[in-house]
């Protein structure tokens, strides 16, 4: 049962994500529309996108508060995700012993960043106006994941050994059931459920910005329309 569910969630996430990316990649861009000044070479574009993904460059220009909260959240999320590999790897590479502390810190920063973004969304009239319920719920969902994670780290330790076993059983497709002997174990089930929910929502929501950013014509296109003729694949067809 758990195995089935886990594979369903992963399936929806992976296929859903790939399907969106496939659509983004396939739909043509009829005209050259980079927001200028734009790079005039492909390498320049790679650099531009790198700066967007690694530093949120445009957001930094646009909105310092969103940048602070967003950068804290995303940066911490990245570290937390890397640290999570320890629950799946056996034996554990030595590398993970070193990032233990950084990982725990990142958890706190992530929750802090999310809380900040939530307050910002609630308090700034412009941002409140453009928010749908889903925008708040998304933050609440991530907060839920972060808080349950921190709770397990600091207070209610679940049965990690048992969980790790369940996880490796998942991979070998044998049946498994989670431990349910302490508060920690319950919290873990909540944590896991929320993550599952996030993964299912991912391909159908604005979370697709994580892949979509690479398909934004104003950012990925090279500014060379006079030198290289850009061909519109549907020109002349009805």
């Amino acid at each position: 049962m758990l195995t089935l569910l886990a594979y369903a969630v992963l399936g929806i996430f992976t296929l859903g994500f790939l399907r969106r990316i496939w659509i983004y990649a396939r739909v043509p861009a009829p005209l050259v529309i980079p927001t200028t000044p734009a790079p005039v070479t492909k390498m320049g574009v790679v650099f531009r996108l790198f700066k967007e993904v690694a530093f949120f460059e445009s957001l930094f220009k646009g909105d310092k508060l969103a940048w602070v909260g967003g950068y804290a959240f995303h940066g911490a999320l990245a570290v937390v995700l890397i640290r999570h590999a320890r629950y799946f790897c056996d034996p554990l590479p030595a590398f993970f012993a070193h990032i233990q502390i950084a990982g725990i810190l990142a958890g706190i920063v992530m929750v802090g960043g999310l809380g900040f973004l939530f307050l910002r969304r609630l308090l700034i009239d412009r941002v409140r106006y453009i928010s749908s319920p889903s925008d708040y719920l998304m933050l609440i969902l991530l907060l839920g994941i972060g808080i349950t994670g921190l709770a397990m780290t600091f207070q209610f330790r679940p049965d990690i050994v048992a969980i790790k076993e369940v996880m490796s059983n998942l991979f070998s497709m044998s049946s498994a059931s989670l431990p349910l002997a302490s508060i920690g174990d319950v919290i873990f089930i909540i944590h896991l459920t929320l993550v599952g929910l996030l993964l299912v929502i991912f391909p159908f929501s604005k979370l697709m910005h994580a892949g979509g950013i690479f398909f934004s014509p104003t950012r990925y296109q090279v500014d060379n329309p006079r030198e290289v003729r850009h061909v519109n694949p549907w020109a002349g067809k009805k």
Binding site: D63, R126, V127, T218
Partner: peptide, 24 residues
């Protein structure tokens, strides 16, 4: 148009409602 304009398809999907553009 969603099948003809990548900009439209991608932009309608991926806005995170951060509001950075709002006062621009």
């Amino acid at each position: 148009m969603l099948e003809k304009y990548k900009s439209l398809q991608v932009y309608l999907d991926i806005c995170v409602k951060c509001g950075a553009c709002a006062d621009k």
